[in-house]
Nucleic acid binder design. Structure first.
Lengths: 213, 213
DNA sequence: CCTACCGATCGGTAGG
DNA sequence: CCTACCGATCGGTAGG
């Protein structure tokens, strides 16, 4: 058995997991993103990590618990990344751009998590589903407030701030559905371009051909 | 449970269905949109229309066949609506706007179909899944070509035409996820605003405060 | 349109 | 970590 190495690779936001537990979680991300949560059986998951089904339960509480852990840790990490990227800036254009970049960076760097997070809310039990929707609403509020602020200052030009908010988020969320790590554009290039597209969408009339920081 | 009135309300593009068959299809749309295809059992569906499970099979071939019928008729109707709205116009700005309007109109007027269409591709058997992805790609091409055309003419200003295409479609597809028929905005108002947002997203610098037709 | 029924498979447990 | 096993439920059929 090797000592360390894997510990360093483990995601920092999730509770510290054993090597096996991390393997199970990782396989679940891959299978659930590809075939959906309900379309994936515990047998599929066991085979993906080279175990029998009962052994999985040494590492997870249940299929549903694993889904909840993934959904909430993903949403919480997204909130953290967004807040880290935008604190300290008050200019709505800069905030919208940095927030979009953080969001898209997350969506493409944690593609499976984001894709599952977008699609599997319906698979959560009602109580945790409600809590997650609340977190998502809190997240949406950040964008909405930025857009309202920019519109009030005459920096953004939209006819409905609510629709512009949905439009920006819809645009950003779809990244997880098509991003190809082997494609021509890196995570950073995509994030950067989306930051500019957000500004254009919001009717920002400043320069978007170069970085307006 | 309502009696009659259903024939008049039946979608015209789908093969003509008996009253019962239309009821079953309609209930499937509601349940699948709310709880997902795999999260809905045939028992749920039977109860929704006041039948026992075996009786459903007098009206549908199988659960999977019903999904395929819904997914393909939805995609085909979307293609028709898009083409009907955009034929005869060559100006990329007008095409992008009219195409977006047609798309969003469809997404909000056929919300359940659109939502299922967006999410359940993974639930189709591999062969029909491939065919549907092909149709979706054909649909995306229409937007891509319009954006490329507009960029070539210097009407649109984006740094990646591919990303702008994904952004427009992502923005539009999300409408089915939040649209509320009882909300403040009508289907037509949402479509119109999204048409303008598409132009802004694409970096169109003409007037978007009033209708530029 | 129903009752009766079925093989397959589901997530998960017992017990070592 | 495994073998053996389980109750529940799945989509669907037989037969009238």
């Amino acid at each position: 058995m090797e000592l360390g190495g894997n510990l360093a690779d483990a995601p920092q936001d999730a509770p510290r997991l054993s090597r096996r537990a991390a393997q199970v979680r990782d396989a679940a991300l891959t299978l659930w993103a590809r075939n959906s949560y309900r379309g994936t059986t515990m047998k599929d998951l066991a085979e993906a990590v080279g175990l029998r089904v009962p052994s999985l339960y040494n590492h997870i509480g249940s299929k549903e618990e694993l889904l909840e852990e993934i959904m909430f840790s993903t949403m919480n990490e997204l909130l953290e990344k967004y807040d880290a990227a935008t604190t300290g800036t008050s200019d709505p254009a800069v905030r919208l751009r940095l927030g979009t970049e953080a969001h898209v960076l997350f969506q493409s760097a944690h593609q499976r998590e984001a894709f599952i997070g977008n699609r599997e809310i319906v698979s959560l039990p009602p109580a945790s589903r409600q809590r997650l929707v609340q977190l998502r609403d809190d997240y949406e509020d950040r964008f909405r407030q930025t857009i309202e602020d920019g519109a009030a200052r005459g920096i953004f030009h939209v006819r409905s701030q609510q629709l512009a908010t949905y439009a920006v988020l819809g645009m950003c969320n779809s990244v997880a559905a098509w991003f190809d790590p082997g494609g021509p554009l890196s995570v950073e290039e995509v994030a950067r371009e989306y930051g500019l597209l957000s500004l254009q969408l919001a009717g920002y009339r400043g320069e978007t051909q170069s970085r307006p920081r």
